[in-house]
Computed example of a mutant assay.
Amino acid sequence: MPFVNEYVSYEDAEKYDLDNLWNKYNYSMLKMPELLNHFDVHQHSWCVDKERGYWLFNCGFLLNEDSLSGFVEPSNEEAFILHVNGQNIVFILAHHGMEATDLYPIHF
């Protein structure tokens, strides 16, 4: 089966400790699992290949401690966790340039 986008079951979220992965990388002042109560959707989402046990989880934007304002701000870098063969591989990807349009999509 190919990768599919879906909501994470509560059992899988607990099994893979997704709340703590989110909290480690996401800049939000609210932390998981309390943050799920502030959204319309009350579950994590991921891209998963259940046959092989692989998944990709977006943890959101990282903090920029060295911002021009002198305050901690969200950066242009996002953290993704790829789970393969029982290991979590962290990817920090940055997007640059203009806002996404049909003519100029944002590239990671």
Rank of each mutant, 00 (worst) to 15 (best):
N37W: 07
L18V: 10
G60T: 01
C59M: 08
G97S: 02
P74Y: 04
H96I: 02
L93G: 06
F3I: 07
S75G: 10
V4L: 08
E6G: 09
E51R: 02
V90T: 14
Y10W: 15
F80P: 12
I81C: 14
Y54M: 05
S67F: 04
L30D: 03
K15F: 14
Y10P: 15
P33R: 01
S67H: 04
H83A: 06
A13C: 15
L68P: 09
E73P: 05
S75E: 07
L18R: 09
Q43C: 11
Y27A: 05
E65T: 12
F3L: 11
W46Y: 15
V90H: 11
F91K: 11
H96Y: 06
P2D: 10
Q43I: 05
L35K: 02
E78H: 07
S45W: 09
P2C: 01
A13E: 15
M32C: 13
N76Q: 03
E11K: 15
E6D: 11
D19E: 14
E51G: 02
H107L: 13
H38M: 08
M1Y: 01
N88H: 14
E6Y: 02
F3P: 08
W22C: 07
L63W: 13
G60I: 01
S45T: 08
Y27W: 06
K24C: 09
V41H: 14
F61Q: 10
D40Q: 09
D19M: 09
V84W: 00
L93W: 04
D49N: 12
K31A: 02
V72H: 12
H42S: 10
Y27F: 11
D66R: 08
L36C: 09
S45Y: 08
D102V: 07
W55S: 15
G97C: 01
L68G: 13
N64K: 09
N26D: 08
L62Y: 06
R52Y: 00
D102F: 09
N88S: 14
L103K: 11
A13Y: 12
G70C: 09
S28K: 01
D66A: 08
R52G: 00
G53W: 00
F71N: 12
G60A: 05
H96F: 06
G53E: 00
E11P: 13
E34Q: 11
M98R: 00
E34Y: 02
E99F: 00
N20P: 03
K50P: 03
V48P: 03
Y27H: 09
N5M: 10
P33H: 02
M1P: 03
M29Y: 05
S67I: 06
N64E: 12
N26Q: 00
E34L: 06
I92Q: 12
Y104I: 07
V72N: 12
E6F: 01
F61H: 05
F71E: 14
G53V: 00
M29P: 01
Y25K: 05
Y16R: 12
K50G: 00
L30A: 01
Y54C: 06
N64P: 07
L21R: 13
V90E: 13
F61K: 10
A100N: 05
